[in-house]
Amino acid sequence: MVFLLEHFDLAAFVAATLAEDLGEAGDITSAAVIPAAARFTGVMDARDPIVVAGLPIAEAFFRALDPDVRIDRLVEDGTAVAAGTDLMRIEGAARAMLTAERSALNTVQHLSGIATMTRGYVDRILGTGATLLDTRKTIPGLRVIEKYATRMGGAQNHRMGLWDAAMIKDNHVAVAGDIGEAVRRAREAGIARIIVEVDRVDQIEPALAAGATHLLLDNMDPPTLRDAVAFIGGRVPTEASGGVRLDTIRAIAETGVTYVSVGRLTQSAPAADIGLDFAPA
C-alpha cells in the first residue's frame, strides 16, 4: 500500500534522512562486520503501552535499501497496543536492515510518542463535546508527519501553516492599530478563515463585528472562558489555548468551547519505547 500525505514527499524524506546518517563513507560497521550475503529477520515491538504512528514510513526506510525485503505490518497506525506487542516483522538483507534500523526506529518512536500523548488528551475530554487541536509548534521539516501523528492519536489538525487561514495575534494587532482594523484588512484581502486571538472579553465584540470567523480565547481561566463562550453565543467557533495541561484540559473543555489546542502534543511528547530485535533467518 502506498503511503500518501499531502505536502509530504516520502521518498525525499527517506533519502535525506538516510543520507544524513550514511555520510560519504556509508555504514562502515555493517560493511565491515556483516557478510554481504547475510540475511536477518527482525521484529519491531512496543516496550510500553503506546498508540502507533509511522509504521509505513519505517517500512519505506527498509525498502529504500532492500527493495526485496519482506515486511509484515502487524498493526495499523492509530492502534493502541499493550507493552510487548509486535508491530512489524521484516526479513531481508542484513546489511540493509541494520543500516536502516536507526532511521526507521527514530521516526516511529517520535511519531508514536506524539500519537500516544495525543490520545491521552483526547481521552481526558471525552464527553465534553470539545475537540482537541494541535498547533504549528512542530519541528521544522517534520510538520506534516507530526500532524499526521496527532491525527492518529485522535486530534484534529489546526492550521497546517501560514497559508491556509489567517490568525491575528497580539503582535498583528499592535502593528495594525486595533483588532477591528486587523480583521478588516484580512477580509479586504479576501481571506475566508480569519482566526482572532483575544485575551479579554472586551475584545470579542470588535473582532466579531469586523468579521472574525473563529475566536482563540488565549490564557483564560475556566470561569472567564465560560463567560466568553456565553457572550459569543455560538456566533463563531471558539478555541481555548495557552498553557493547557493534561490535569487542566477537562475543566477547560467543560466550559463549552468548541476546541482546545495544545502545543505540547508536538512540542514536548517523549519518544515511545520501541525496539527492533534481529535474529538470523
Rank of each mutant, 00 (worst) to 15 (best):
L4N: 08
L5N: 04
L10T: 11
F13I: 09
F13W: 08
A16V: 09
L18S: 07
A25Y: 13
T29C: 07
A32E: 07
P35Y: 11
A38K: 09
T41C: 11
M44C: 13
D45V: 00
R47V: 14
V52D: 00
A58F: 03
F61E: 02
F62H: 10
R73C: 05
R73H: 05
L74Q: 04
E76L: 10
E76Y: 00
A80E: 14
A82P: 00
D86M: 02
L87H: 06
L87C: 07
R89W: 10
A94V: 12
T107G: 03
L111A: 12
L111I: 12
S112M: 13
I114P: 03
A115G: 04
T116Y: 03
R119E: 07
L126V: 15
G127T: 07
T131L: 11
L132S: 01
L133M: 13
T135D: 09
K137Y: 09
P140W: 14
R151D: 00
W163S: 13
D164G: 07
I168C: 03
I168N: 04
N171I: 11
N171Q: 06
G180D: 02
A182E: 01
A186Q: 04
R187M: 01
A189S: 15
I194F: 03
V198H: 00
D202S: 14
Q203K: 08
Q203T: 08
I204F: 01
E205N: 05
P222I: 13
L225V: 09
R226V: 05
V229D: 06
R235P: 00
G243Q: 04
V244W: 01
V244F: 05
T248E: 05
A253D: 05
T258H: 04
Y259F: 15
R264H: 11
Q267A: 15
A269V: 06
A269N: 02
A272M: 03
L276V: 08
